[in-house]
Write a protein that binds this DNA or RNA. Structure first.
Length: 290
DNA sequence: GCGACAG
DNA sequence: ATCTTGTCGC
């Protein structure tokens, strides 16, 4: 199983994890609890958060966890907390939260201490919510379909994707039991691959999908995208060039050393970000070519 | 043995 | 998650 590939995880630990997931699932609220969630324009919503973890390439332990807070509807970053972390739990499909969530929760706690006024009203997370084997409370914004409950990324599924016409179009993801586990969402007009949205906590699936769509300037909703960009950039600018030197790459860097920004656990109102465009994923574009 | 496998 | 080159388009 995936368990072995990830190391020796005791059956006891796995049982504890499953029990914890069941416990949390029982507490999960999958309906709107805030007024803004039912408002057509999300009036009252002012801050949306996003979190992500990026890894150091050769390492499965060293990573950077980022929490960002964006204004709504402008989607401008007003808070960033990026810091290196050392993961302890292995990655096991179905138990992602046990690997990454503790550090993201820490970031939320730091935000509560330092800038409580910037606490987001909703948080978008990489991964799945109830679209999950057990159903962890978290807002799910997945980029790939997790094949559970009979869901399959098969020909039929791909056909439905083809039928998605404009940004905002969706189709339900039905589990074997007939339950709607989530929605596939074409996040913008020129996106080929949909996003897989599932409810996390205290929000309805409908509102979750609508909000995710409203947060998309590109395929990935800005909160998650900014957290992703910034966590990777943080790694690149700190230990990015400290990796083991490659034999055939002895180039000299004589340029002036850029001032080491006091980012050690940065939690600063990220002000810049005044560039009109930037599919800053790779040099080209995302896997989104029409 | 083979297929699956969010990040 | 990460590696990885070029290509097309605004």
């Amino acid at each position: 199983m995936a368990l072995e590939a990830a190391g020796h995880l005791s059956e006891e630990t796995l049982s504890l994890w499953k029990r914890e997931q069941a416990r949390l699932k029982a507490l999960l609220v999958d309906r709107d609890t805030e007024a803004w969630q039912r408002d057509p324009a999300f009036s009252g919503l002012q801050r949306v958060g996003g979190v992500d973890v990026s890894f150091v390439k050769g390492d499965s332990v060293s990573a950077c966890a980022s929490l960002v807070v964006l204004t709504y509807p402008e989607l401008e970053v007003v808070y960033e907390d990026s810091r290196m972390i050392s993961l302890t739990a292995p990655y096991i499909s179905g138990f992602l939260a046990f690997r990454e969530m503790p550090f993201l929760v820490d970031a939320v706690h730091r935000l509560q201490e330092k800038e409580p006024n910037l606490m987001p009203q909703v948080l978008l997370v990489d991964g799945n919510g109830v679209l999950h084997h057990q159903g962890l409370p978290c807002i799910g914004v997945a980029k790939k379909l997790l094949q559970v409950e009979g869901l399959e990324n098969n020909a039929a599924h791909k056909e439905k994707i083809q039928l998605l016409h404009a940004g905002g179009d969706t189709f339900p993801l039905m589990g074997g039991s007939g339950t709607v586990l989530g929605m596939a969402l074409k996040s913008h007009d020129h996106s080929t691959k949909p996003l897989y949205i599932s409810v996390g906590h205290k929000i309805s699936l409908e509102a979750a999908v609508r909000l995710t769509h409203c947060c998309c300037r590109f395929r990935i909703p800005e909160p998650v995208r900014q957290a992703d960009i910034r966590s990777r950039e943080y790694i690149r600018r700190t230990l990015g060039l400290s990796g083991p030197p490659v034999p055939g790459q002895e180039r000299n860097q004589k340029g002036p050393k850029s001032k080491a920004h006091p980012k050690g656990g940065s939690a600063e109102p990220a002000e810049e970000n005044r560039h009109p465009e930037d599919p800053s994923k790779g040099p080209g574009t995302d896997p989104e070519a029409p």
